[in-house]
Nucleic acid binder design. Structure first.
Lengths: 162, 162
DNA sequence: ATAGATGCAAATATTTTGCCGCCAG
DNA sequence: CTGGCGGCAAAATATTTGCATCTAT
């Protein structure tokens, strides 16, 4: 039996699927969490980022809006968002050092496919991945709250080039 | 159509599937890599570890055989093994800090299913996971060399307890 | 008014590098 | 013998904590 082909959500740069401006702010507000000036700045950046953000880049971007916003606040805000499952933390197979990357947690889980040669990261959705998760929930009597698949290898262009 | 049920490779502690004593040493030897006293110690520990090792634990265990074996040597040996794809590096969803865990790379990829409450990590093999990888290779014209799936949530016993 | 957030400095954790003497092959 | 390897110290990178002050509600 054949499955639906994998849907390539983005090629190269990341498309922010869940990009509804103000969504993160609304989610936190709904939960009665204090919305400070610093948090609003960070949330906006995270929501609209066209790529996967690391702490360094997030801080840089934040500094354009407020030069005094502290790196610690970035860490603390990311922790907050992780706790509420509003962002996912990735390491993209440590392609570039041991830092982590963050992205808004969209409506559907996707797989990260990273080329070890050119560094491009594709996001792919697949029905098989959803089935895999359901299978594990069923067979292991497990309730899944986080699922992360990161795949490394060589993309079509890098393969043809070599 | 139904798929083969997920095969639970281990429950709780890790079963070292690829545990053939001397396999790592043989693999390195076959590649003409120098086998030092320190490497032999580390390889043996990695091969026979009943659980996922981090650098700290690996160093501790190594110190029982040689108290002078340095932490840097542990990092360098793990790098070597990673480069030759003889071990996999996991972060187990940062269940316990931002350290990494290492395991011998067995004949078949498996999924790590980690309970966020009790911390137990199960290894699960699934035909669906293999199909997912093949699908990505086909649909994205991508050559996969590393594949890592880490799933977090709550296991049966922790769910019934709450 | 006040619980909770931020900034700053310092501590901690994790990984990498430079260099020199040593040892496996 | 000798080129790669390990030990040591130090640097680099990444993240967390303590505390005084400030601010969103």
């Amino acid at each position: 039996m054949a499955s639906t082909p994998a849907r390539r959500v983005s090629s190269g740069e990341r498309i922010n699927i869940a990009a509804e401006p103000g969504r993160l702010e609304a989610e936190l507000g709904r939960r009665g969490i204090r919305l400070t000036r610093q948090r609003r700045i960070l949330l906006r950046i995270i929501e609209t980022a066209p790529e996967h953000l690391n702490v360094e880049v997030l801080l840089e971007k934040a500094h354009r809006a407020d030069a005094r916003l502290n790196r610690v606040t970035v860490y603390r805000t990311l922790d907050l968002l992780k706790r509420y499952r509003l962002v996912d933390e990735l390491d993209l197979l440590h392609l570039r050092g041991h830092q982590h990357f963050y992205e808004t947690h969209g409506p559907r889980d996707h797989i990260h496919v990273a080329c070890l040669a050119c560094g491009k990261v594709r996001e792919v959705e697949s029905e098989l991945f959803d089935r895999l998760k359901r299978q594990i929930e069923r067979d292991c009597h497990f309730e899944i709250t986080v699922a992360r698949t990161e795949i490394g290898g060589y993309c079509a262009s890098c393969r043809s080039r070599s």
